[in-house]
Design a protein around this nucleic acid. Structure first.
Lengths: 210, 210
DNA sequence: TATATACGAAACTCGCTAGTTTCGGATATA
DNA sequence: TATATCCGAAACTAGCGAGTTTCGTATATA
């Protein structure tokens, strides 16, 4: 088995790489990224945050850029499982049920990470791809699924522009965090749902919830 | 008059500073900023773009950060004059009239500049202030003014959430450029107006314009 | 004319950071 | 046990860029 060690031969002498450190290093990368931005982040900061040696990082990722791409790509979607969506029977109920403290907190953290890599994205197509998959695609898919269910049950007419409607919530939250630099509160989300998204889809407000 | 030259005494010997170079240098700064982002931009790039010496820049601004702050603060609002708004008689007409190629082009360029300084904003309150005044405030004020006029003429009820509605267009365009990295087309703007903003304000679509 | 400042261009310094190497020690194979 | 790889820590290298200085020249005051 050791005749030709050209490719990845798992049987090697020496201490094994501690695989539990990978997610810890990636988590530290995201933390520093959110606080300092891509250019403000140094590899030493990440190593210190993860209580790891810099050599350990460079043994696993060939460059700072690859480390960041991997960190963004492996980002967890906290509580956003597209298979396990709320089902309250009404579109408004489903959208409101999506507003959970943990989910909002995570979304805001992600937007700070996004702010840290926005300027980098235009020069790294690979980062642009993983960023889209990490930040844009999951939320859009979930909102689209909730709206589609409302269409299926006859609550919303398919005549409406569903794609644009599904983009409203992500766009408004991103704008609020990145441009207005205000926190995303529950009241703000409810206001967007009741005053923008539901009217756009032709859903009449419940008489007592205005 | 030269008895005490403690403060800015305009009567000084020597060649006068060429004041026409200030706006040229600031324009070059914005160009490089949009292309490279704050950290990717070097002072040498700006000097070369403006065909100026680096010493000339440092004679006028004490640091790269101050130069960028000044460039953003002095940014022109191409065609967005809050005193000279379209008045077509209907909110939809006014909003559609705001979609001019020159204005959209300028808005997209501004968003690329914004992308270049987003990560810097969280660490420079001064930059955050001028960025808000340059990017956020003007557009919000115009949309708010158009909506307010619609309220005044009885087209829109003041019961609606006007603030949130005024934020929809800036938020959707920013999201489209910064996150989706797609161009802002006229069709997109019309879709946002007809399918999101007007429904949010309770304006019924004209029967033949759907 | 003598002096002081501005100009563009280019050389220079100095600190910071990506990436490498070295070290003592730990853990694996053979 | 001998060897090879891992670990964290720290020293090291090399390049880049912010900010300064220098140079030859142009333009202002006195």
């Amino acid at each position: 088995m050791t005749l030709l060690g050209l490719t990845a031969d798992p049987v090697r002498p020496g201490r094994k790489r501690d695989l539990t450190r990978d997610p810890e290093i990636l988590a530290a990368t995201l933390e520093v990224l959110a606080e300092e931005g891509y250019d403000g982040m140094t590899v030493d900061m990440v190593a210190a945050r993860a209580k790891a040696g810099k050599a350990t990082l460079y043994r696993r990722w060939p460059s700072k850029a690859e480390l960041v791409i991997d960190a963004v790509a492996c980002m967890k979607n906290a509580g956003l499982d597209p298979e396990n969506l709320p089902d309250t029977g009404s579109l408004r109920g489903d959208l409101i049920a999506m507003i959970k403290p943990h989910s909002m907190e995570d979304g805001e953290r992600k937007l700070h990470i996004m702010a840290g890599i926005v300027s980098m994205i235009s020069r790294s197509p690979e980062l642009a791809t993983v960023a889209h998959q990490a930040f844009v695609a999951p939320r859009a898919a979930i909102t689209r699924a909730l709206i589609q269910r409302a269409v299926d049950r006859g609550e919303v007419s398919a005549e409406h522009d569903l794609e644009t409607a599904a983009m409203v919530a992500p766009a408004m939250t991103a704008y609020r965090v990145l441009m207005l630099r205000q926190p995303v509160t529950r009241d703000f989300m409810v206001s967007v749902i009741d005053n923008v998204i539901l009217p756009a889809l032709g859903v009449k407000p419940a008489p007592s919830s205005a």
